[in-house]
Simulated assay, not measured.
Amino acid sequence: MTEPKIETVLTSDLITLEEPPAEKEATIEFLLDRAVEAGRVTDRETALEALLAREAETTTGVGMGIGIPHAKTDAVSEPTVVFARSSTGVDFDAMDGEPATLLFMLLVPAEGGEEHLELLSSLSRALMHDDVRDRLHEAESKAAIEETITEAVA
């Protein structure tokens, strides 16, 4: 199975410039609603249960101001990444204690185990670079965010 292209997984309708809620669970719901509105989620409640169950297993706050809540679920029709950023940060229980200001939600179909890991790995590697995080913080449009992520993950 080949890794899905980031351009098909993160489209402009999955990027929001709106400020997410300050609380983790509300932020997860905020991100999930973007995927629902984009027609990527077939069952919001099932997707939310999968995300919260994954969150309960171990933190998805990876440090350096990044939160990547993610889940494999039958409630999503295709691999999907949603992006938002927070000016104040959301506590995702990151190891470094820093709140997450760059938020990525990753949803993949239940049978997409390999895709899930490859996508998560590619995204995580790209976000380790200071310049990528800086560009995401400074981007003033959805197009600039989409371009930054596409270049970084390609």
Rank of each mutant, 00 (worst) to 15 (best):
A22L: 15
A22D: 13
E23K: 11
E23F: 03
K24Q: 15
K24Y: 05
E25F: 09
E25P: 00
E25C: 01
A26M: 15
A26I: 06
A26E: 14
T27A: 14
T27L: 10
T27M: 13
I28D: 01
I28S: 08
E29Y: 02
F30Q: 05
F30N: 08
L31N: 03
L31W: 09
L31P: 00
L31S: 06
L32Y: 06
D33Y: 07
A35D: 04
A35T: 06
A35Y: 11
A35R: 02
V36T: 04
V36Q: 09
E37K: 15
E37V: 05
G39Y: 04
R40K: 15
V41C: 08
V41L: 06
T42Q: 13
D43G: 07
D43V: 01
D43L: 09
D43N: 15
R44M: 01
E45A: 14
E45K: 13
E45I: 01
T46N: 12
A47G: 13
A47Q: 08
A47W: 01
L48T: 00
E49V: 11
E49A: 14
A50N: 09
L52Q: 04
L52F: 11
L52G: 04
A53V: 07
R54E: 07
R54G: 05
R54M: 10
E55F: 01
E55Y: 03
A56Q: 14
A56V: 00
A56K: 14
E57A: 05
T58R: 14
T60N: 02
T60K: 03
T60F: 04
T60R: 05
G61T: 10
G61Q: 08
V62T: 08
V62M: 15
G63E: 12
G63N: 13
M64C: 06
M64H: 12
M64R: 03
M64A: 13
G67A: 13
I68R: 14
I68V: 13
I68N: 09
P69T: 06
P69V: 09
P69K: 10
H70V: 03
A71C: 11
A71K: 05
A71V: 06
K72Y: 09
T73C: 09
T73K: 12
A75G: 13
A75M: 04
V76L: 00
V76P: 01
S77T: 14
S77M: 08
E78H: 02
E78S: 14
P79K: 09
T80F: 08
T80I: 10
T80A: 09
V81F: 09
V81S: 03
V82H: 00
V82R: 03
V82E: 00
V82D: 04
F83R: 03
F83K: 08
A84L: 06
A84I: 04
R85T: 10
R85V: 04
S86I: 07
S86W: 10
T88Y: 02
T88V: 10
T88I: 13
V90H: 02
V90D: 02
